[in-house]
Design a protein around this nucleic acid. Structure first.
Lengths: 219, 219
DNA sequence: CGGATGCTTCGATTATGATCGAAGTATGAA
DNA sequence: TTCATACTTCGATCATAATCGAAGCATCCG
């Protein structure tokens, strides 16, 4: 059944990664999904059997890609509806504590710290409006400016400024959109954290984490 | 997660029944799904929490319906893909012959007649390009103008003009996008067909259907 | 050739969620 | 008012499938 195939978070994350249009190896997809290679292999076999993806073997590398535009289109429609309705994933996210704590989701911060940031911005009225129409308040604009994010660089006709993104591990919302991406970039610039190579883990230094928690207080 | 919500067979069967556009009671939906009333109730609660359906209580009866045309559209796309890939456990498309023939998919024509329109436009080179980049040809622009659709009103920065949409019942493509919606509106204006109240069925008069088949010939 | 890397397959573990019996509440009808 | 019907909620049961360690196969590279 298509729904249950896509409904598994690990498979959903792999399909999401493949929606970029790039062909990825099993190892890369395992990292995207935050599962072991054997688990990923098992999932990929199911997706392939369902003709949602196809594989191309190059030596010892297996490259996987979405089977066609129709697949991508349906996935996109589903994600759009899911995003609009703020649907909760049933899995609680990856086992790896580091991934649970802070990781890359597309291009913004996810995990407990990602949720923390969102909650903080919400609690302090830096973000306002219902989840499907989040806006940055004047106070919020001031806040991010002082944090080092230039509001002027956030304008884009094609991508929302603020967008809630349902966090896989925390079952709550973290901040996506242009602002989410810019905030993560700023965290990198400040040297508070860095992305571990070939994973989605974002590793904070102890000082960086302390600074982050202070900056994005929920008290 | 949307996928897993829809992926459960009982829920899938209930959603399928609701795609007719009619509101059904919990008891009716339990029968559709082949589960007890208490199980159905539990499932319906989940679907309602996910805003995929809404309920209307009339005395002791609870009527459930899909939350909107958008939900129906996504479900239809999923089912179309599932059917095409042989992933479905149930019959392809609705059992109601009227729904199979012509129904609303979001805001455009689906079903056999919807596929017929698309095939016709394709066969006569009114639409060109690969499916992910469909464009209206000059001949096509002339054709739709003569049909009574104003090309100037079709411009939108936010929505594609032509877009293929996988048809649930026919396992083939029907036309979505602005043009698809405009064409359906025109069919209504011409009095060839009308949407049945409280359903997604589009009912053609015999004259209307004859005219439609002539207009969108595949010969 | 031997060791490293990429990946598949097997099998045991366990978290998850569908399921239904039981019980309770709300509404309708006689 | 009593009984029937529609539906919700609770909780125990258990089937399912995701998960990863272990092992094996295929390919690459020094």
């Amino acid at each position: 059944m298509l729904g249950s195939l896509i409904g598994d978070p690990a498979r959903a994350n792999m399909l999401t990664a493949l929606m970029s249009g790039k062909a990825l190896t099993a190892s890369e997809l395992a990292a995207e999904a935050g599962v072991t290679l054997q688990t990923a292999s098992s999932h990929l076999s199911k997706l392939e059997s369902a003709a949602l993806i196809f594989r191309r073997k190059q030596g010892r590398h297996n490259y996987f890609a979405l089977a066609g535009d129709e697949v991508g289109s349906v996935l996109e429609a589903m994600m759009g509806l899911a995003a609009k309705h703020g649907l909760t994933r049933t899995r609680t996210g990856p086992k790896d504590p580091a991934l649970r704590k802070a990781r890359v989701c597309y291009d913004h911060l996810a995990g407990e710290l990602g949720v923390r940031m969102f909650d903080s911005l919400r609690a302090r009225d830096f973000l306002a409006g219902p989840d499907d129409r989040l806006v940055l308040t004047d106070a919020g604009t001031t806040f991010i400016s002082e944090f080092g994010v230039d509001p002027e660089q956030l304008k884009s006709p094609r991508r929302p400024l603020c967008k809630p993104c349902l966090d896989w591990s925390a079952r709550r919302t973290h901040l996506a959109g242009i602002l989410g991406a810019a905030m993560l970039q700023r965290v990198y610039e400040l040297g508070w954290a860095a992305r571990l190579t070939d994973t989605r883990i974002i590793e904070f230094s102890s000082t960086g984490e302390r600074n982050f928690l202070n900056q994005f207080t929920t008290a």
